[in-house]
């Protein structure tokens, strides 16, 4: 048992790690914002939208939630080009993140919409707002507030899941780790470092999401 952990390589490879962290944060930020936007649109469609569109959303949500993220990624990056849709690694990774989080957040946000008291819709209607205006101005914010903890957890899970984008050579943090360990032959130490960075990122992300919730929902008690 003479193995000595060695982190002497760290300073030399720090720039590589930092680049990787940058890409991971980028994926997370774009994926979270656009993914939640897509999820909101889908949730609206499922809960209140036109009848013909609902089964489409159900199919999308079920398909994504019941297949691994990596397969979705491979399908987008390797499969879609045969339909003539070419994408860079980073574009494919970003798209996969959006599509994936879109499905999960759809289900979560829909639950928030459905917990809205009927009186809120009726009050909006009686003030001559259209169903969409009522949804946007009246229903959405309290609905998001209701499900913000669940949505935050899901965003963290998706961020951690993004580690597999290195498998299509998108140059995120896990890609950086793979690259470094192929050079320094210190695989275990390299993955310890990258794992700890992910841990810090997920803790920070939780804080940021809590802060966003705090700013987004000035009134902390949502209507039941």
């Amino acid at each position: 048992m003479g193995y000595q952990l060695n982190f002497g390589w760290l300073p030399q490879y720090l720039p590589v790690l930092i680049d990787g962290i940058g890409v991971t944060i980028y994926l997370m930020a774009v994926g979270a914002v656009l993914g939640c936007l897509l999820g909101t649109v889908c949730a609206w469609t499922r809960a209140l939208g036109p009848n013909w569109a609902r089964p489409v959303v159900v199919a999308y949500v079920e398909l994504i939630r019941n297949t691994p993220f990596m397969i979705q990624l491979f399908f987008i990056f390797f499969g879609l080009p045969s339909l003539g849709v070419q994408m860079s690694e980073l574009e494919a990774a970003t798209l996969a993140m959006i599509v994936n989080l879109g499905a999960y957040s759809c289900e979560i946000i829909r639950a928030g919409i459905q917990a809205t008291p009927r009186g809120q819709f009726e009050a909006g209607a009686s003030l001559a707002m259209t169903p969409f205006e009522t949804f946007y101005h009246v229903v959405l914010i309290p609905a998001l507030q209701r499900i913000w903890p669940a949505l935050s957890s899901q965003i963290v899970i998706v961020m951690l899941g993004s580690a597999v984008v290195s498998q299509i050579a998108a140059q995120d943090l896990s890609y950086a780790a793979n690259f470094i360990q192929s050079r320094n032959f210190r695989a275990f130490e390299t993955y310890i470092v990258s794992t700890l960075i992910y841990l810090v990122l997920s803790i920070l992300l939780r804080q940021v999401l809590a802060g966003i919730g705090w700013a987004l929902f000035p009134k902390r008690k949502a209507a039941r």
Binding site: P117, Q120, A123, S126, V138, P142, Q145, F217, K221
Partner: peptide
């Protein structure tokens, strides 16, 4: 309305 239905946010 009977139940006011103010917008809570």
């Amino acid at each position: 309305f009977q139940s006011f239905n103010l917008f809570p946010h």
